[in-house]
Design a protein around this nucleic acid. Structure first.
Lengths: 151, 151
DNA sequence: CTCCCAACGTTGGCTGAGCCAACAATAACC
DNA sequence: GGTTATTGTTGGCTCAGCCAACGTTGGGAG
């Protein structure tokens, strides 16, 4: 973000879409900084979380579960495998597939990232009271829900 | 966004930071589609708005007012100038500067984009009642405000 | 069994918004 | 006068998301 404006740009700074974009930018900075400090990226967290929640699966399944494109799954898994957080083995029952498994190290990393993420949520919502945080989450959830179905 | 998940990724889909990112993604899609249909981009709108609100100014001033990087201002102004929405003239009082001015065509385009933007806000907030829209805007404004100062 | 279509992993590339570094020209200050 | 700052510009980088193409492999229809 570029600091030091000379007064607000009225037409823009009041738009809901602008506020959402700003909030997202700040949020994204917090999240990616925190992930970077933990040696990971958002994609890693999503993939580890999916493996933990759904168990081992093919890369295509992982992509569907996390909403990450097949091609991006490949790269992220390469990085996770290089750190031994994940294991990639050919599926004997279907030679097109790789079966991806969470290693103990991966589970450990996931738990650590959980705490990192929780800390970020805390910082992000710091200016809001608990009741306001709930309100914000509820409003955003309704917004996202609507556009997920409609869009 | 990737449709067709197989159930929610619990760890991720409840995070406030995730909801904000999702809302921002949907919002951004609406905005950029609408701008594209009007033959413009977000940068164009911001620059035209700044010229309208603050009057003519140098490119560096425009960058400061809109929060757009100097280098990106150059490109966006090239595009605006190619459409004669903006005029770029050397400043006789300071030969480093260009003075950028909004043309009548530019003012017209800005007015059109205003209506486009208003339509997008309407679509974006469609699922919320007027009172909820106000609440959301208020909460987001407080969030953004806090993180802009804390930064 | 054969043919065709679908799914898989992978490579490579593209977009958009936001940054940052460097440069020559010019201005401003001590 | 000599140093520092500002300006316009070029070029490049990141990060998330997406899409096209390829060769491989499975599975269903005839």
């Amino acid at each position: 973000m570029n600091t030091a404006d000379s007064g607000p740009l009225d037409r823009v700074h009041r738009l809901p879409s602008w506020l959402i974009a700003q909030a997202s930018a700040h949020s994204h900075r917090l999240v990616s900084d925190a992930f970077a400090a933990a040696g990971s990226r958002g994609y890693h967290y999503r993939l580890l979380a999916a493996l933990d929640q759904f168990g081992p699966g093919s890369q295509a399944e992982l992509g569907r579960r996390t909403g990450i494109d097949r091609s991006d799954v490949v790269a992220a898994l390469n990085e996770l495998a290089a750190e031994h957080l994940v294991e990639r083995a050919p599926d004997p029952a279907d030679r097109r597939r790789n079966i991806v498994t969470l290693t103990p190290d991966g589970a450990r990393r996931l738990r650590h990232l959980d705490t990192v993420v929780a800390g970020v949520q805390h910082d992000l919502l710091a200016p809001l009271s608990p009741a306001d945080r709930d309100r914000l989450v509820d409003l955003l959830a309704r917004l996202v829900d609507h556009h997920a179905k409609t869009g």
